[in-house]
Write a protein that binds this DNA or RNA. Structure first.
Lengths: 332, 332
DNA sequence: CTGTTAGCGCATTCAG
DNA sequence: CTGAATGCGCTAACAG
């Protein structure tokens, strides 16, 4: 049976109002009656109906989170961290998976709005054309939100992300210093902030070194394993000296392709990834990569969101977390 | 601004009741007035409050899902599939991550109960002692639930899972047929159904072949990368001829340890995993494994749950999906 | 076809 | 300290 507060009030022989006050630890209720209420609540296994609570208190115990690709362990870890923190704080997590399709992101966000969640965290997807109405809808509904790992430009919201430009700069510089010139970048979608920033870091390294580079070396890709494989297949005939990617999953696709073509890493080609997934450490040659400090990103983004929810802060900021270069064996 | 149905009613110059009927496409409302209501709703960007809707209709648009380890791509894929199906059906997904801690599972389920979700899917965690009160609470609150990938014994609920015994049987038989005798099994927790079934398959293969085996070859582990590494480290001095595991992530830990100890696979030791993660295909030597058909499991478990939600079915069943043996190069 | 009334489960006034 | 009354936003009778 589902019990309501009426049931516990009736069985505790008090009114609904006092039952409510007792249950919520409000003062102004006699200790004896409180105990009586609590004990019947326990006996009945009574759990308050959040829909009713949220409705009357005009608040919510849920946080909405949209990620692009839950299949990628990087986002798996992000969800894990965010989930832990959010639950710890007494909230519930509603999850949307966009698969990098903006319409799905919008659908999830609309769900969140209808459910009147307390706040939303979104990992933006790759899109050429942005229809960001759902984000403005969040704003007009007074629901705070923050971006994680990257952001959509032109939106007034907090963002917590890795300093992607710096990461790409570090890795590209490393490759240049090792004597490579023809360094390809599997870059994702040029329109996207997370690609642009990495491209800028890549460019900066070249410019600082005074080595010429070609725009043709910047390859647009999707961020998946297969995309890394296909892109590599296409550029192989250009004889790249090194290939960097915007994430480890792409880099694994690169390695797979090179393997299938009997090209040795790093003897024939150097390869570098981005993210530092644990699973890359057992590769034939462990992957040189950039670590994005996920725990920090998760902690910070939730913190920032909570401040907005609690009304402690009202100005928006993009927080950059320092990346860490992990030199392993896929680079000379 | 947040608008309520009152606002759209007022601006459309109708009563709240007709506004509601128009919005919900009920018939018995003039086409003109319906259009009028719809247009102001659109103009206002009105989205109904689900808390109120759920409260009055005594229903819900949310499905709760608890997984153990979202960091493992296997569960990432499972969440992805379930999310897609559930969203497609017009539901919202609430996610809990237990990290194999039963108290966290319970907390998530309690959240789901309080939110009065329509149904719950749970991936049971590894535990010696089960306090399954939260599941009985689901039942007493009339919330249908189903298990995915494994189940807790003694609970009246549906389960959709891979035929784990068969999978382990197939792989063990394969190893025996290749001439191995001393085959270790990194088995997870013996108390858990998902371990037991695999152990049974392992046993069956030995018994059929008439080869003696030792109980000592069955090693209890946690299901994580590090656990695979550590377990391997411990059994190395016993000179195993082959190591099978209950998931690919564990197997990757095994491979990493063997690599660090300069032990060749499969020349010195054969290794086999379970799950068929895409990332294992680029390993030094691609991993022999058992594929669990995740899409099928996801589809079926959601289907089964929906039938319970809609009251179309009332008896419980465990559905076993056939595993697929993937022989690659880590086995002789 | 439309508006009035009632109530989902709960928290918060305000009298007593 | 306690209870009766009110309303959160919405849907479902029921009259008119």
């Amino acid at each position: 049976m589902k019990y309501t507060i009426k049931d516990v009030a009736r069985l505790a022989d008090v009114s609904v109002a006092t039952a409510s006050m007792a249950l919520n630890n409000k003062d102004g209720v006699n200790e004896n009656t409180r105990q009586k209420v609590l004990s019947v609540a326990k006996k009945l296994n009574y759990l308050p109906n959040r829909n009713a609570q949220n409705l009357i208190t005009q608040s919510s115990n849920s946080i909405g989170l949209v990620v692009t690709d839950i299949t990628n362990p990087f986002f798996g870890m992000l969800v894990n961290e965010i989930s832990n923190i959010v639950i710890e704080a007494g909230y519930n997590l509603q999850l949307g998976v966009s698969n990098d399709i903006i319409e799905r992101e919008a659908q999830s966000v609309n769900n969140f709005i209808q459910n009147r969640v307390a706040g939303v965290i979104v990992v933006p997807s790759i899109q050429d054309k942005y229809d960001l109405k759902h984000l403005f809808d969040l704003q007009s509904n007074g629901i705070p939100f923050a971006f994680a790992t990257t952001y959509y430009p032109g939106i007034n919201a907090d963002c917590v992300m890795c300093d992607l430009k710096k990461g790409s700069y570090l890795i590209t510089k490393k490759l240049i210093d090792s004597g490579h010139k023809k360094i390809y970048l599997l870059a994702g979608n040029r329109q996207a902030v997370f690609s642009l920033q990495r491209i800028n870091g890549y460019r900066q390294a070249f410019e600082e070194s005074g080595i010429d580079f070609s725009e043709d070396w910047i390859i647009e890709t999707l961020p998946y394993f297969e995309s890394g494989y296909e892109a590599t297949n296409k550029i192989l005939k250009e004889r790249p000296e090194a290939i960097t990617t915007i994430n480890d999953v792409l880099a694994m696709g690169v390695l797979k392709c090179l393997k299938d073509n009997h090209i040795r890493v790093p003897q024939d080609i150097s390869v570098a990834g981005y993210d530092d997934l644990i699973y890359t450490s057992i590769l034939e040659t462990p992957l040189t990569t950039i670590r994005q400090p996920i725990e920090e990103i998760a902690k910070k983004v939730v913190h920032v969101l909570f401040e907005k929810i609690e009304g402690k802060s009202s100005d928006y900021c993009t927080y950059y977390i320092d990346p860490i270069l992990k030199i392993r064996e896929t680079t000379k």
